[in-house]
Design a protein around this nucleic acid. Sequence first.
DNA 1: GCCGTTTTCGGCCCGACTGTTTTCAGTCG
Length: 580
Amino acid sequence: MASSLPPDNHAIARVLVEIADLLEIKGENPFKIRAYRNGADTVSTCAETVASLTAAELVQLPGIGRDLAGRIRELIDTGAIAFHQELLAELPVTLLDLTRLQGVGPKTVALLYRALDISTLDELEAAARSGRLRGLRGMGEKKEALILKALDERKRHSGRHLLADTHDIAVAVAAHLRHAAPGTEFVPVGSLRRQSETCGDLDILAIGGEPALFDAFVGHPLVERVLGRGETKSSVLLRGGYQVDVRLVPPASRGAALQYFTGSKAHNIALRDMALSRGWKLNEYGLFDNATGAPIAGETEDGLYEALGMTFVPPELRENRGEIQAASARNLPRLLSLSDLRGDAHCHTDATDGRDTVEAMAMAAKAAGLSYLAITDHSRALAMTGGLDEEGALRHAARVREVSKRLDGIRLLAGIECDIRPDGTLDLAEDCLAQLDLVVASVHSAFGLDEAQMTDRILRAIESPVVDVLGHPTGRLLLRRDAYAVDMARVVNAAARYGVTLEINSQVDRLDLNDVHSRLARERGVKVVIDSDAHAQAGFGTLRWGVAVARRAWLSPEDVLNTRDVEGFLAGLRRNRSKQ
DNA sequence: GCCGTTTTCGGCCCGACTGTTTTCAGTCG
């Protein structure tokens, strides 16, 4: 059995980031800190398994020099980095929780720790509530309120995890279990199977196995604590705070167990209600006749739904949001699949904050099965990324078009992700934007506007004739930052009126639009585009998460603009529609 | 700490916004 697996790229990157965070709190040389962050970036986007590389090979990677290569090898060989351990001995690890609060950075954390000996979220909250923060330099009433708000957001998110992270954990745990119990089927259920944007606990169903498989489960190297070990169910807490439950069920209950443990609770209650009204009983073992106790269905999920007079309900729809009525009327939409996507309308290159060249991104998109890709680097307002001004944008566009001519099997479109300024005007002149193939307009600043101001700001951008797509429309960062205040009903209506496409941004911590707003878009006849917002060659893999949102939103291929071929896609853009 | 040399030092993405200031520090992207 695997005992000490080598750390994967993400695990290595996490340690490097932690070193950078701790150095930052210590007030170390900012360039040294950046070097650790760059190194972490390189490792996490590296296509190869970093743990398999020698020190000599490591220094070939960009941003990894002699020192970082040595530290990474040390981590792989010994399981830890002494320098990292020294830092942790010097500063409480809980300080890192504080830096993750919105609006609280390393300087503030250092000040709180030095002046008030605050090192945990609870201590910070107590200090803020008792007004002790106000005595500190640079801290006033508003800063105190900001910290309390950030603490509140943080509390609401605790114990939840991003869908993509949960998926990764599930894959790792399931692989371990399959290795230990080759004859048993393991299926992740619960919110992961429904592809919810965040997941709490991870539930895995073990179908047709022996209770001995729980020995392997609780012995997994990532297990921090065993919460329970029984004959049909065991629970553990993994490092990083994941609770994982494995339930063992007999093959005869396969369908019923899948159905029951996939949920959602609201969907299950509605189904049980239907069963009840027919004189049946539905539970995790099957569907039974109340009078005779005879089994009616339960071996397959299909059979279960069929017995209740419904077509199979895809897990993503099981939220009791009308799917039961639609499935009973045999009227569910044909949901979008990843393989329906033919293009991507949002990505970045090394011209701004992407890592890779136009050519490299094009080849990666092609390898991901796409036939067209819009290059949409940032506009000048995002100075930190080296955002392009009008001249830069047009020069970049000319280059993208020139590269596109030389490529086989993938067509590049010259676009831009143009900032929407706080007043709703665009960051670049209209005559420049009009010369591009498409414009994605996005908000990246002044998130604190009130709802009326923010809505006006976005409506003004939608009204601009050169805007084709509204990028990540609500600006949320999952588990980190709430959406800004905006009236999405008005935004969707305006998008319908002007023919603007709304983006589902597939970045794992954005998924923005969310499922509810995407469904609203569909109902109002607004087209959606599912974008990767890739910043590196590996970034196209996130499209599956955008597709998950679309499926939860009941979207069919015809609702999604980038399921069309490139001509159809271009024809559907606002700038070309208005010419018709 | 990395990188690229005009090879062993000196530069390294920087502007907007906020809240605290009275000229700026911290955070974010």
